[in-house]
Nucleic acid binder design. Sequence first.
DNA 1: AGCTAAAGAGTGCATATACACGTTATGACC
DNA 2: GGTCATAACGTGTATATGCACTCTTTAGCT
Lengths: 153, 153
Amino acid sequence: MTKKAPLTIERGALEPAACTCASLRRAARAVTQVYDEALRPSGLKATQFSLLATLARRGDQPLTRLAEALVMDRTTLTRNLKPLVGKGWVGVAQDGDQRVRRIALTHAGQEALERALPLWRDAQSRLVGRLGAKRWSGLLDDLKITVDAVRGG
Amino acid sequence: MTKKAPLTIERGALEPAACTCASLRRAARAVTQVYDEALRPSGLKATQFSLLATLARRGDQPLTRLAEALVMDRTTLTRNLKPLVGKGWVGVAQDGDQRVRRIALTHAGQEALERALPLWRDAQSRLVGRLGAKRWSGLLDDLKITVDAVRGG
DNA sequence: AGCTAAAGAGTGCATATACACGTTATGACC
DNA sequence: GGTCATAACGTGTATATGCACTCTTTAGCT
């Protein structure tokens, strides 16, 4: 019956140096730079690649629904779409409901995505390789669980 | 000798839906909103809290060194400091070397940090509680390893 | 001293992010 | 059929992020 079953949170977890938010943002910064650089020849940033890929996977969608899928503020998505619409990669169409803006991948957008795909795969496989498949998949699971934890309630 | 020891990366890892960068950014968005809301009464955003906490922990420091510690672009740090300097929470001092700007936490900054600390602890302990201490500490480790993986070479 | 490479830093530009607020269109209810 | 809550959306404002470029200062070399 020496130390066991911690009722309290583990040592150090409540020191700012262990801030979950800061750690996530730091990792996001570091990894984003790598993906952005890898994608540079395609003219896409990592965020934009994910946006196009999500559209390709899920099809046309109202803006708000797309924002929810991306766990992104609706107004952030509105602005993130702007450069993509400007390049003709994404189209915005009216819906039966006049309030709704349907977001769609254009043909040019599909092509841009296909051009970027091998570049993305290079970056992704490099990173997965360095982390190891096991740690990588654990990380992805944990990130998903974290998102659910702060949203699900 | 049925399926074993995958020489290739695991199934699905090279599909955009499994993008490491997008997953990190998504989790960072979700968690940042929680911390930002918790910190709101203090007038600090999560990013700013971490910046002040880092300064408190490491002491005065040249801008570039601080940026490296935060795994943040130097020019990003310059701009992130602006609102904190404006509020008198951070001071910028000359160094013997005229090129160097030493960044320091002011007394008011120390107080702001102390006011924010219990708010941060609430948010942090809530999240650690929801994830469970084990998963949380694994996540933090993995994030650190990820940063090292993309920077260390 | 003078030249030069490199270090430290700021600015212009573009994107990413979200809250507060206002606008328009729907749908429900009386 | 008018009233009103709500849903969907855009904009203003502020911060966060980083690349390309430029400027100043320092250190090193001759």
